[in-house]
């Protein structure tokens, strides 16, 4: 008896389908997470991280990042 005989007898074929549902469930979980209110401040701040990370070196006519916050 070979390994593949044993595996074949185990009826694993249903698992990809089950996995499909698990993955959808997690997806919905993430949707809920972002749909929640109350996180606005934290998320707004997180979204601004790239704009507050760096002092521009000389020579670059770089605007100092002082954008107003959009809410």
């Amino acid at each position: 008896m070979r390994l593949s005989d044993i595996m074949s007898a185990m009826g694993l074929a249903i698992y990809p389908t089950i996995a499909l549902f698990i993955f959808l469930a997690v997806f919905i979980g993430v949707l809920i997470r972002i749909g929640r209110r109350g996180d606005n401040d934290a998320l707004t701040r997180a979204g601004r991280l790239p704009l507050v990370d760096d002092a521009p070196p000389r020579g670059v006519g770089d605007r100092v990042h002082r954008t107003e916050i959009h809410r």
């Binding site: 997690v26 972002i34 704009l51 959009h70």
Partner: peptide
């Protein structure tokens, strides 16, 4: 990272980026 820097404004929706990430990784 670079688009917000170049445009000098934060990404349109940080919430959307979270879904974007997980759904890409999962699918």
């Amino acid at each position: 990272y670079f688009l917000p820097k170049a445009a000098d404004r934060p990404v349109y929706s940080y919430r959307l980026s979270i879904v974007h990430f997980w759904s890409l990784v999962f699918t």
